[in-house]
Design a protein around this nucleic acid. Sequence first.
DNA 1: AACCCAATTGACAGCGCTGTCAATTGGGTT
DNA 2: AACCCAATTGACAGCGCTGTCAATTGGGTT
Lengths: 337, 337
Amino acid sequence: MPRATIDDVAGLAGVSIKTVSRVVNNEPNVRQSTREKVLGAVRALNYRPSAPARSLAGDRSYLLGLLYDNPSANYITDVQYGVLASCREQGYDLLIHPCDCQQAGICEEITGLVGHSNMDGVLLTPPLSDSRIIVDALERAQIPFVSIAALQTGRRAAGVVTDDRRAAFSMTEHLLSLGHSRIGFICGHPQHRAMAQRLEGYRDALQAAGLAVADSLVVQGYNSFESGQAGARRLLQRKKPPSAIFAGNDDMAAGAVMVAHQMGIRMPAELSIAGFDDIPLARQIWPTLTTVQQPIKAMAQAATQLLIGILRAAPRTDIEAVIPSRLIVRESTAVAG
Amino acid sequence: MPRATIDDVAGLAGVSIKTVSRVVNNEPNVRQSTREKVLGAVRALNYRPSAPARSLAGDRSYLLGLLYDNPSANYITDVQYGVLASCREQGYDLLIHPCDCQQAGICEEITGLVGHSNMDGVLLTPPLSDSRIIVDALERAQIPFVSIAALQTGRRAAGVVTDDRRAAFSMTEHLLSLGHSRIGFICGHPQHRAMAQRLEGYRDALQAAGLAVADSLVVQGYNSFESGQAGARRLLQRKKPPSAIFAGNDDMAAGAVMVAHQMGIRMPAELSIAGFDDIPLARQIWPTLTTVQQPIKAMAQAATQLLIGILRAAPRTDIEAVIPSRLIVRESTAVAG
DNA sequence: AACCCAATTGACAGCGCTGTCAATTGGGTT
DNA sequence: AACCCAATTGACAGCGCTGTCAATTGGGTT
């Protein structure tokens, strides 16, 4: 049997299609008895509104986009999970779009994608959320968006963040409390604002402890496992290597762990390593990683709710929701040897 | 300026909207000169057909769904990547839908999802592809689908697989050639056909080498890291533990590696461990995993192409494309000590 | 009882395409 | 030159909804 349409429901309930539409969309000003009659017919016919018809008539698609940069694979799974949870709850569907942040014409690609699938709005993850040209392009094209990341300064937009700086501060304190005074730091990608915040938190804690921030103990990474390996190698080959390494994310920390294994350095006895994010990998390598549990799913959910709210109501802007993260101590950190 | 419609293009090109439609959809029987005139207007106006309007009028949505079971996170990233690549190429969008295979009412949930978003077809990954009730439901609802997995026996359907049995055979041979004669095996989920194939390959190789398949060396796992840990613990606590462990996938192999670390067993000197899939994790743990590189992205791409082909042409069924996989030897396997 | 006005309901156009089928075109054939 | 027929083009309905605005309802008020 073919799918029931709004006309079928209206016929069975003995009302006009407009009234069915009102009930289905939870609009006000429908008598309770009428609402029940319609809902009965909806159930009887197993009616589900046609998404394209709604979309065409109502000029909104109930479709959100999730844009992300390719390599961030480990992190994005959790983001997807959170976003989908909120989408389903609210009757939205989700299109995912990995894209290459660096690529020429990325802005046209993104606005093209959004236009073609006519999404109602998009969710942005770092590093896309940190790109001025991409955010500019979205604003110019008047595409509603929410960042799952810190807002760019001076931007009228909405975002959901965690307290990166404070969490990095706590992690550094943790290492200091274990007696480490030479703590290496592997920075994340220089263009990711969250990564800059984490470096700040590290610096703050050292200063608060009265220690100098040695340039030789801070190396540049690029968020990837491989860049973590490279960074750790540089740190561990110094004349006076650090007794602890704090990496800007878990992927890089895992790379550092790998290098330590290869160099025959025992962890945590001879070297403590800490990460940030608490991706599944943090529990799957040995020693398991002490890290900062970032509530990625919760952040993604909150961002999605925010976006849907913006789509429904008048655009509220300048919103930055902060969801706190917490320290998880596992096997990779211990008292300095 | 508002988005250009088919009428705008028709007006500018001086033809009817039907002709524009023909050109845009690459239909035959349009004079070359007309086609060029229309394409010129399309470019001039930056015209992009409205997805919902097409969908409503043409009764197809250019939307595919990718269904997968929640926990398979590590594997699904690659699948998504491959599927998306093919989708973009062909002008399709992708909706992703994690779902819980075990949950009551899963069939209604799936057909509901597909109906609501009115997808043209769906891609199935294991274990969904191995569930008779789910595949039955899709067939009953006449939803076109392709499995990124072996077909269920006796089923008229299409799927893309790799040569699981032969690859497992090769891996076992590899371990045998290193002098291991007591090789433990951690099975994958009993309801995943691919996992059963891998066990068969392991058995084949032992038999081919004239060795008995000891029941005590085969333990049941459930694909997860944790189940790999449990399985490895059981194997290594035997009076005569194996000198090598072959796990049905990399997640379980990684779990085994973790257990060996915790028990103070040196790898690969005292214990060789091998996995299957070559997920990123295989390179991120220490020692790096010897494994079977499954061409997941290629399989996903092939499956997507197959599905789109089926949607376009008359439904071809009974197709099983086989994409070969290959052995990757890393640090986790070595000559028996 | 007549009236009023907010609450409720419905008629109908129109969103931007594709499918159907009829009309037109134009080069080859007699 | 008249005709024919495949190739090409176009007219128009209709997909299933929502938005707009007008019509109706019905309880409170005078």
